[in-house]
């Protein structure tokens, strides 16, 4: 069984929601990312999204743009990220997802990428600029290794598209909670609940919500309607602010712990 399915099954049994932190791999280096993933696990995170840095991250706001820039400057590549995951896998039980723009994995080769990601111990793939229509090759290559392909639904997606996306998704569906790019927002959209209800009419897959969610209060609110909550820019921003400080890991861990509490009833 894929670790993602297993995790959501257990969470359903215990009536909890999933906390999914997002980290830009290699910001500022892969050793730090490795340590952070283990710290997230320690503090109760349920799944980890590992962002593959890209030179032109057009779905991201300034926080993740800067993190990607730092990671690339530090020499982070897809190959090194896969090595890091492979090395980490023995110590880490969490489902690990790679989130990459399409070009780095297209260039790597979809089939080769699915082979190597699965071999490294990756459980799922999220490619924000690859809609299901263009993803046939990746979906097939991933399925051959029981690697889940997770697609995104947006507030602008109509019901018939929701059906297409749900049919292509495995593990869970990523609901983008706002019109816009990633980044910290002070307000969440009001129509979240209605949107998730519309999606649930089309699929039984767990729904995870991301984009703009940054505080324990926001996590608590989203956790009342979603199966999982994704927090990215707020964590990346904290790492930027605490860069080079001796208590960085602890402060990140404390923040994760405060978010995890908010996913429990």
């Amino acid at each position: 069984m894929n670790r993602i399915d297993e995790r959501f099954r257990k969470l359903r049994e215990s009536g909890e929601r999933a906390l999914m932190p997002y980290l830009t791999a290699g910001d500022p280096d892969l050793l730090t990312t490795r340590a952070l993933i283990l710290e997230c696990e320690e503090q109760g995170a349920d799944l980890i999204e590992i962002g593959v840095p890209f030179s032109d991250p057009l779905a991201d706001g300034v926080t993740i743009q800067r993190a990607s820039q730092r990671a690339l400057q530090g020499g982070t590549t897809l190959t090194r990220i896969l090595e890091m995951v492979s090395d980490l896998r023995a110590e880490c039980q969490l489902p690990l997802l790679l989130m990459s723009y399409v070009n780095p994995i297209f260039h790597f080769g979809f089939t080769r990428f699915a082979n190597e990601a699965a071999a490294a111990g990756v459980d799922g793939l999220i490619v924000p600029d690859l809609p299901p229509e263009e993803a046939t090759e990746l979906i097939e290559a991933a399925a051959a290794h029981n690697l889940h392909t997770i697609f995104l639904i947006a507030p602008t997606s109509r019901p018939e598209r929701v059906r297409t996306i749900a049919a292509a998704s495995k593990g869970f569906i990523y609901y983008v909670s706002l019109r816009g790019v990633t980044g910290v927002r002070s307000r969440l959209s009001d129509d979240l609940e209605a949107s998730l209800r519309m999606i649930r009419a089309e699929t039984d897959l767990p729904l995870a919500v991301g984009f703009g969610i940054s505080t324990p209060e926001q996590v608590r609110r989203v956790a009342t309607v979603a199966d999982g909550v994704i927090v990215g820019s707020a964590i990346v921003s904290l790492l930027e602010q605490t860069a080079g400080q001796p208590d960085q890991l602890k402060r990140a861990g404390d923040f994760i712990a405060s978010l995890k509490v908010a996913t429990k009833k």
Partner: peptide, 10 residues
């Protein structure tokens, strides 16, 4: 093709 974030597909 069409390689864009889902928000733009509509």
């Amino acid at each position: 093709g069409k390689f864009v974030p889902e928000t733009l597909m509509a």
